[in-house]
Simulated assay, not measured.
Amino acid sequence: MIKKSSLIFSFLIRFRLRVLKFEKTEESKLKTNLKLALILLLPLFANSLIQAQQTVQDTLSCFAPLTGFISRIYPFNQPPFFFLIRTNSEALRIGDIKGDIGVTDNMALRSYLTFSIQNFSQISQQDSQVFINSAKIRLGNLGSMGNGVGGIYPIFNNNPNLPLVADHIDFGTVLDTTDWDAGEIGNNQTITPETAIVMDSVDINAIYTEFDVKNSLQYDIDLNKNLSQYRLAFSSFETDNDFFSDNLIFRGAYLSIPENLRPKLILNYTVYKFGDTDFDGFVTELDVQLVLEKIVNNSTLSDLDLKVGDVDGNGKLQVNDASLILQYANGLITKFPVEN
């Protein structure tokens, strides 16, 4: 009887050891399979996040019919008058040059840029919003003159560092002589004067000049504009009447100019929905939870986080935003106050 019990006990021990060995093997296999699954699914998961956030890198060419320059003649001891408007041109010219009418006149020039952004208006009509992460205008350098000498920065009244600025303007669908003062403070076509410094010295080896227009572009998109427009000029200056050429020249929008050298708007933007704080493409109670967690933890918010979560439009992320998102997720409201 004792021998039989020992045999049974021994059998049970061996059986348990086999079970443990099997369980350990299966656990190891399970872990391995999970790792493989994660490796395989991670790119898909990452891709789904990218698709949900829809972060896009894009480049827009300038709208040629509204990109060009205006020139103005300053005859000696006589009132100035407009001479030429040229759009879809081979060059953008800013500054002054010795005039074509006679030896005692100067010609001042200012240039204008237009980019079509109507695609962003279409996005807004699809219950989505656009957040500009970065935006810059890139110009192809063509030449410069200072006191009539090529290759140096313009010199006005012995000032060798007068900055070339970009003014954020809205001159509409026609470039004409009345747009000469667009960009000046108080002009009704001026949105933001001197929104960016384009340059204040010349790098003769640089192929391009770039300047930031993120805030200006965001402004235009938020107002559902179809065009984003800028003026290039020397700040509050037209000509020093010294009869020497002082100007900067960039590549224009004419079709003969290689595509990569024409003015470009290079931007990175994210398409989102108000209230979709986890960027999965839907407004759900998970978004409410995420907002509350950020409020409780006093989390540092990115500009995009605030833009998406601040659904009451007061510039802060608060409990009221979570309440509104909860109402939206449950169909109690169909629009957020920030959208009105």
Rank of each mutant, 00 (worst) to 15 (best):
E194M: 08
N215W: 08
N268C: 11
R110I: 00
Q189S: 11
N314F: 05
G309P: 04
E26D: 10
L113D: 00
L92F: 04
S236Y: 10
V202S: 02
I185M: 10
D220G: 06
D287W: 02
Q229M: 09
E26F: 14
D321I: 05
L304C: 08
R93Q: 05
V288M: 02
N159L: 08
L217G: 04
N268D: 14
S121R: 11
I97N: 01
N188W: 07
D127G: 12
T173Y: 12
I70W: 00
N157D: 13
V288F: 02
D200G: 07
P193D: 05
L227Y: 15
S236T: 12
D276S: 09
Q129C: 06
S5Y: 13
T284M: 09
P79S: 15
T114N: 07
G309A: 15
G275H: 01
F120M: 10
Y272L: 05
T32R: 09
R18F: 11
Y269D: 03
S201W: 04
A37N: 12
F45A: 13
P258D: 08
Y208F: 15
V174P: 01
G140T: 04
D312A: 06
E184L: 14
K294M: 11
D278S: 08
L20R: 13
F22G: 07
W180R: 04
L248M: 09
N106T: 15
K35C: 11
N161C: 03
Y328T: 03
A46V: 14
F22P: 00
T59Q: 13
P154C: 08
F9N: 08
D167W: 03
D312V: 05
L41V: 05
K21N: 10
R138C: 04
V19I: 15
T25I: 15
R72H: 10
D105G: 06
L223N: 13
R262P: 01
S71K: 02
F45T: 13
E259T: 12
F9L: 13
V149W: 02
L261D: 02
P193N: 07
T104F: 12
A206T: 07
Y153R: 02
I249C: 00
T104G: 07
S71D: 04
D276N: 10
K24L: 15
R14C: 12
E259R: 06
A322H: 03
D287M: 02
L162G: 02
G313V: 04
L261H: 02
Q125P: 02
T195C: 15
E285A: 12
N33Q: 14
E90R: 08
G252D: 00
A182N: 06
A322L: 08
K4P: 01
G148Y: 05
D170A: 14
D280Q: 03
L20V: 11
D220T: 10
T67K: 00
V213H: 01
N77A: 13
R93I: 12
K3V: 10
G95L: 00
S116Y: 12
N33F: 09
F115E: 05
D310N: 14
